[in-house]
Amino acid sequence: MSFIIDYYNYWIVVFLMMAGFYIVISANNLVKKVVGLNIFQTSVFMMYISIGKVTNGSAPIVAEGITTYSNPLPHVLILTAIVVGVATTAVGLALIVRIKRAYGTVEENEFKDKDDLI
């Protein structure tokens, strides 16, 4: 039991990761696929933020009487990754808008019959 409680943040990461991955694979609607991709990426952000925590560490701001600080670097890294994630979502949604215009639908099974997607 303590195996689950002590590492609850990592269990959340694993759950979100699998949920997002499953949506990407199974969803028929392209917008849902992008949402799934987002959840998948968010789980990785949580993993990075989790590893920045140091036992008994305080926020990484220099202050009187505090000797141990949490590691701020993973947070900074993940800021970059969040920007990358937002950019990916933007490109994905822009593509969906153009797909909707060209095919008249964003449901994958509906245009697969009309057009040879390979």
């Binding site: 991955f21 990407v24 991709l37 990426q41 593509l95 797909i99 060209a102």
Partner: peptide, 16 residues
């Protein structure tokens, strides 16, 4: 127009 679905598939796979 087929380039759009190709690009979308590339985006999903590439992001994963």
């Amino acid at each position: 127009k087929r380039c759009l679905t190709a690009a979308f598939r590339y985006l999903v796979m590439g992001t994963i």
